[in-house]
């Protein structure tokens, strides 16, 4: 766990690798309430058209949330988090969640850390781009 009070611009968050299989995406469907068959049913027409079941965009968003949470170790509060789904990730393929400290500010005596977040697929292509803002405990 990093010491958030001492993080600096340019610091990288420890990478988090996800490789969600069908079982994991079914669990995510249950946990999130998103039962779109695109994510788990190989016979679903849209999955047939695309040629694969796709990882939920919001699974990647939530995984980036985990990346931040694991790094933060409850030394602060995630005040804002965003993700833009730029590329499709297929069920069973590796997704590496990454982040970097891009700015540090102060607000009413508290440290506010701005993070750039992204996911990379197995080819190294960025399939999700995001940001988060973390307010550190004083």
């Amino acid at each position: 766990m990093a010491n958030i009070a001492r993080c600096e611009v340019g610091d990288e968050l420890p990478a988090l690798v996800k490789q969600p299989d069908r079982e994991q995406l079914v669990k995510y469907a249950a946990g999130s309430g998103d039962f779109n068959p695109l994510h788990y049913d190989p016979d679903f027409p849209q999955a047939q058209e695309i040629g694969a079941n796709l990882v939920h965009g919001r699974f990647k968003y939530a995984a980036l949330g985990q990346l931040v949470s694991d790094w933060l170790g409850h030394q602060g509060f995630v005040r804002r988090i965003s993700a833009s789904y730029r590329g499709m990730d297929r069920l069973g393929e590796a997704i590496t969640c990454r982040g970097r400290v891009v700015a540090i500010g102060r607000e009413r005596g508290r440290r506010v850390v701005l993070l750039a977040l992204w996911t990379e697929n197995a080819e190294g292509r960025r399939t999700t781009e995001g940001t988060a803002e973390v307010v550190c405990e004083p």
Binding site: Q46, E49, G57, Y85
Partner: peptide, 12 residues
């Protein structure tokens, strides 16, 4: 009839 997710943001 077809949907994909484009992006999400939460502001707390």
């Amino acid at each position: 009839t077809r949907v994909l997710d484009g992006g999400t943001e939460a502001i707390y």
